[in-house]
């Protein structure tokens, strides 16, 4: 028996409108999660280099736990496990955003820590010697320089997190992969649909890469 596979362009093209419905969810979970993750990253990243052990220690624990466990386990825990604790269901969208936030927050904490520590201590000394307080010195001298150095690794984390949202099909959020699975269940055109799904992810991540390149070229990422 001879088997010949043919890429069904019709099927691929027809799947697009249905798949596109997943994009807003993918973007909402990624960027919503990343926005919260960035705030968490600043807070825990700075706490992790605080001189007081009682602030440093919990921050380090958070970072290690969320960096050291798979994001799939984290989201399953939030979606299926946490309701037992809070006594009510958590909707999949919230669970997805929370998982990206907590997970990216741990990685971004490390980016923040590295960025801040990379700034020469002479900068802090210069600020202090001029009479600025420690807080003023940090936010007007150290942070702006550290932030520029953080842009490339932050962009990297954004790309990782966008792709991580694909795992959330398991909790039934209607994001890109979930839409693909639903579509395939009716049409059995797995090859074509996953091909289109991959292309759509690539379009999102490539646009982001492009934006980051432009930022770098404008000198915003180097001091």
């Amino acid at each position: 028996m001879e088997f010949q596979f043919q890429f069904d362009w019709q099927a691929a093209i027809h799947s697009i409108p249905f798949l596109l419905k997943g994009i807003p969810y993918t973007l909402l979970i990624s960027f919503g999660g990343l926005a919260i993750g960035f705030v968490l990253g600043i807070i825990f990243g700075l706490l992790s280099i605080n001189k007081h052990w009682f602030l440093r220690w919990p921050a380090t624990a958070y970072i290690e736990v969320f960096r050291g466990t798979p994001i799939l386990v984290q989201v399953l825990f939030i979606f299926y496990g946490l309701p037992d604790l809070v006594g009510g269901p958590i909707d999949p969208l919230t669970a997805g955003i929370a998982a990206i936030a907590l997970n990216s927050g741990a990685y971004i904490s490390e980016v923040v820590r590295g960025g801040v520590q990379s700034i020469d201590k002479g900068q802090t000394e210069a600020g202090l010697s001029l009479g600025l307080s420690r807080t003023q010195t940090f936010w007007s001298i150290v942070w702006p320089q550290a932030f520029r150095r953080m842009i490339p690794p932050l962009g990297n984390q954004a790309i990782v997190s966008i792709k991580d949202t694909s795992l959330f099909s398991v909790i039934g959020v209607g994001e890109l992969v979930r839409q693909g699975q639903v579509y395939i269940a009716n049409t059995f055109t797995a090859f074509e649909v996953y091909f289109v799904v991959a292309i759509l992810y690539l379009m999102i991540t490539l646009s982001l890469s492009l934006i980051l390149r432009l930022l770098e070229r404008r000198g915003l990422t180097s001091v």
Binding site: D120, E125, A126, S129, L132, Q145, V223
Partner: peptide, 28 residues
């Protein structure tokens, strides 16, 4: 009340020369 000049200058690289000078009087 005490100014300091360092061996490695320690100017603020993200600010223009003029902003380097204006920062402390404005903030402090």
């Amino acid at each position: 009340e005490v100014g300091m000049v360092f061996q490695q200058f320690n100017l603020f690289p993200h600010l223009t020369v003029k902003k380097n000078i204006m920062l402390a009087p404005m903030k402090v």
